[in-house]
Amino acid sequence: MIEIAGVSILVALFIPTLLDGVERKIRARIHSRIGPPILQTWYDVLKLFGKDFFVPANAVHTVMLLFMSLAIQILLIGYTCIAVVAPITPYDLVVIAVLAIISQAAFISIPLTIANPFSIIGASREIVLMLVNEGAFLALVGLYAYYTGITAFSSIGGASPTLYTLLTIFALYIFSYVASSRIPFDIAEAEPEIASGLLIELSGPLLGVFLYTLHLKRFFFKLFASLLLLALFIKTGALLLASSIVLTIVLWLVYAVIANILGRSRVDLASITLLKAYLVIIALSVLGYFLEV
């Protein structure tokens, strides 16, 4: 069993950056361009690692946070993969949710430690968006656990799909889209507005780490939502993990298309719209639970 988890972890660490390459190819296709080779993002990241290690002025904390963020992200993926095939505690779901929140917090602290107006504006935009998004995340995971009784992947046996559970999972997918900071929610790094915002002072290996962490993050949130969805149908851990990874890959491609047919939102517009959407979905779901639809 543990081999399956090991293989999954390796796949989950390699494939996000590859998927970003595929996303670029899809974007190019929608743009009617040829686009770069599929492995381009990997080439980019590896090339960045080969560059001079340059730390921006007064940004020692940035480096620390960046590596911490990468470590938590890897830990998170590792923990999730293992917990699915071989449950570690009876509250794995809670542990994963908490780790996810910590990783997000670490991630968003990175630009805040850099003294650059664009970086700060980018970070403050991301925080506004995250307040809405993370709040919804916790509420949704809580609701899910409450509806299905799943607190760890050892207890997936009894759960069955209901409309109100599916609604929470749908909202979790919205969450994963927003958390992946794709258009229209890439307001924190809006290239033409605030010159890449939170990325502005990062270069070389630091930028490489940042990008890789971002890819892992994108992968994880999709994987997590997929796991919760498929847990309602698939009852063996190994099969659940494998099929979730496949679903995540498919989703990635779908997200790539969506990101390319929309424009960038504005921080005030985005957070309000998002808040409304979450509240409506959660209300519907709770209503559904009490009416037992």
Binding site: R29, I30, H31, S32, R33, I34, V257, I261
Partner: peptide
């Protein structure tokens, strides 16, 4: 826009 892109095909050259 997806239809437009499909109709236009690939316009850049190698």
């Amino acid at each position: 826009i997806l239809v437009i892109a499909a109709e236009a095909g690939r316009v850049t050259r190698k």
